[in-house]
Amino acid sequence: MHELAITQSVVDAVCERAGGRPVRSVRVRVGVLTAVVPDSMRFCFGLVTEGTAAEGAQLEIDQPPGAGRCRTCAVEFTLTDLILLCSCGSADVEITSGQELQIVSMEVG
């Protein structure tokens, strides 16, 4: 259940950044190729924000899709999992999207 620690990191960061102002909403970016489950994160967010400046805040989760680029044939394609295999047969694939785990913005005041 690493989502609890991940979500705690989000809440700590936004509360610190808010400088005592109430946090109304938080937008995060969680790529589909991260090992983070959005529903678990939402569940944890309600628990972790209790008693903080972010209590009652809305959590908005953007989920960038997975994408990769083959270093052998240069084709770009969608990745739905971490199995890195291009249709040309090469496994030398660079992940270009889907591993984001970022706090994008928040609304305060």
């Binding site: 991940i6 990191s9 989000v10 700590d12 960061a13 936004v14 950044r17 808010a18 109304r24 909403s25 995060v28 809305q58 785990l101 970022q102 706090i103 994008v104 913005s105 928040m106 609304e107 305060v108 005041g109």
Partner: peptide
């Protein structure tokens, strides 16, 4: 709509969730 227009301030954060770690 959750917020009255203009009452809240949107703050760009753009940092890694695990930046502190």
């Amino acid at each position: 709509c959750r917020r009255p227009s203009g009452a809240g301030e949107t703050v760009t954060v753009e940092q890694k969730v695990l930046a502190k770690n």
